[in-house]
Computed example of a mutant assay.
Amino acid sequence: MLYDVQINDRGQITIPKELRDTVNLQAHDRLKLSINTDGRIILYKSDFFDDVEDLIRKDLEGEGLSAEQVEKKLPERKKELGKALLKMASEVEQEIERGEYFTLDQLDEELEGEE
């Protein structure tokens, strides 16, 4: 279904309630805008992966890379992060199988004892 919206003098649009309800948009949710190859605007709700990508992008910019270099390097960094996360998950799985793990409550108690 298509929804008609209008841009006001301040450049803002109102997303119709029916659409907000359908896609579970709440006040203060972060949204992302992009343009597809046909020049159409794509609007979507920001998620965890967008936040991670933003952090990687900021890290690359902090290394002094240009915007163009950041965009070229970004996929490589995302792949490196994915590999690291898979390795961590595998290591945790092995620790659980060996019974060598802490529950979050145990970790919390241990950290409180260090204060």
Rank of each mutant, 00 (worst) to 15 (best):
M1G: 14
Q6G: 11
I7S: 06
D9G: 14
D9V: 05
G11Q: 06
I13V: 15
I13K: 13
I13N: 13
I15F: 12
I15K: 08
P16M: 10
P16S: 13
K17N: 06
R20G: 03
V23H: 03
L25E: 04
L25P: 05
L25H: 12
L31T: 03
L31E: 03
K32V: 15
L33G: 02
L33Y: 06
S34M: 02
S34R: 03
I35T: 14
I35Q: 10
D38R: 14
D38C: 08
R40M: 07
I41P: 00
L43Q: 01
Y44S: 11
K45G: 03
S46Q: 11
E53F: 00
E53N: 04
L55Y: 11
L55K: 10
I56H: 00
D59P: 00
L60P: 00
E63C: 04
G64E: 01
L65G: 01
L65I: 07
L65S: 01
E68M: 10
E68S: 09
Q69E: 13
Q69L: 08
E71T: 06
K72R: 12
K73S: 03
K73E: 03
K78D: 00
E80Y: 12
E80C: 07
G82K: 08
G82R: 07
K83F: 02
K83V: 10
K83L: 11
L86I: 02
L86S: 04
M88V: 06
M88W: 04
E91V: 04
V92H: 14
V92E: 14
Q94P: 01
Q94K: 09
E95R: 14
G99D: 12
Y101H: 08
Y101L: 05
F102V: 15
T103M: 03
L104I: 13
L107F: 12
L107C: 05
L107I: 06
D108E: 12
E109Y: 06
L111E: 11
E112K: 15
